[in-house]
Amino acid sequence: MVGESELPKRPAFSELPLHEGDPPYSSWGLWGDKDELGSINLITSKVTREAIKEAQLGITIPLDLPLDAIAKPLIPSRIAYHHNLIAKGFANDDEIHMNTQSTSQWDSMRHFPYQDGYRYYNGTTMDDIAGSVEKGIKANNRNGIQNIAKKGIATRGVLIDWCSYAKRKGIKFSAFDRYEIPLQDIIDIAKESNIVFRPGDILILRTGLTEQYTKLTYDEKIALTQRGKNSFIGIACGKETAQWFWSQAFAAVATDTLSFEAWPRQNSDSWTWLLHEIFLAGWGMPIGELWDLELLAAKCEEVGRWSFLLTSQPLIIDGGVASPPNAMAIL
């Protein structure tokens, strides 16, 4: 972890990557060659002290969906959650079996690499993560979720409630089809809500996916996994989007959809990267997905304020790819 007095000067987006041969738009080495916290380094003690001031009303709002909220993982290759109660007579135990991507989660830096070369944050390779018998390489825990978990997250969260914005504007969309949320919408919502972003903030984007999902019947939920395609609402990819997110110096981002960016990818002649590649592998910036933002959105609207203290304590899973966020907003 970088000390508060040792924060490096943040380069301009145009200066990325920092070293020749590193992947496009990556910031490898900014926090040190062996760093495993990435943009979480931006959450300094000063940032946390300022964030605590956001807890003005004492209203606590958990942001995790129930572990069994998704009837069947929306990506069919992932196993469904299972809870097993072990009744012993004199006491009880229980076990859970789940894919950490099947409900609310943080993606760690070992989830998604640059697809060209399969390199993860700060040069971590698939051989580092999974090992290689042929090469005689033993797997290690580099870039695992345990790094974030052992630090813990306490910073300012900022809600961008695009779902409510879309309703006001008469925008029709299905969260289960590929729909691109324009970056300009995010900027406009922030302006409407009198939000001024600060380094170390976590931007939370409400798309409306979980709202739409909860209104489906059980059969309709199962049918989503049998479409033969994975398509979801998310923010539009592109250089302008990546540049804007870099300029805001966010510690992380989170959303209620399955992928922060619109899925599947749609490449253009000038842009071929997913935000997953840039955020996770390039900057070491965690992505939260499938968060429960419904009560948070209602309360923010009620009190007329969209920033709050955000705490999160992921599970300490050595080498973990993802974890439930155990996240809470405190207004």
Score class of each variant (00 low, 15 high):
G3C: 09
E4Y: 10
L7Q: 15
P11D: 01
E15T: 06
P17Q: 02
H19Q: 13
P23S: 07
P24C: 07
W28A: 04
G29Q: 04
E36K: 14
S45C: 11
T48R: 15
R49K: 12
I52A: 07
A55C: 13
P62I: 01
L63K: 02
L63P: 02
L65N: 15
L65P: 07
P66F: 07
D68F: 06
K72R: 15
A80N: 14
H83T: 01
L85C: 02
L85V: 14
A91N: 11
A91Y: 11
D107M: 06
P113D: 05
D116T: 09
D116K: 12
Y118E: 13
Y121D: 00
G123H: 06
G123V: 04
D128I: 07
I137C: 10
Q146F: 00
A149Q: 02
A154E: 13
R156T: 08
A166W: 05
K169H: 13
Y179G: 00
I181G: 04
Q184I: 13
I187W: 01
D188C: 09
A190R: 01
A190V: 00
R198A: 07
P199T: 07
I202A: 07
L203E: 05
L203W: 03
T210D: 11
K215H: 04
T217K: 14
E220M: 04
K229G: 00
I233T: 10
I233A: 11
G234E: 06
T241S: 11
A249D: 12
A252H: 01
V253N: 06
S259M: 10
W263A: 12
P264S: 04
Q266G: 02
W273K: 12
I278Y: 05
L280N: 03
A281L: 08
E289R: 11
L290R: 15
D292C: 01
L293M: 09
E294F: 02
L295T: 11
L295C: 05
A298M: 11
K299M: 11
E302S: 14
W306E: 01
L310K: 02
T311L: 03
A329V: 05
L331I: 11
L331C: 03
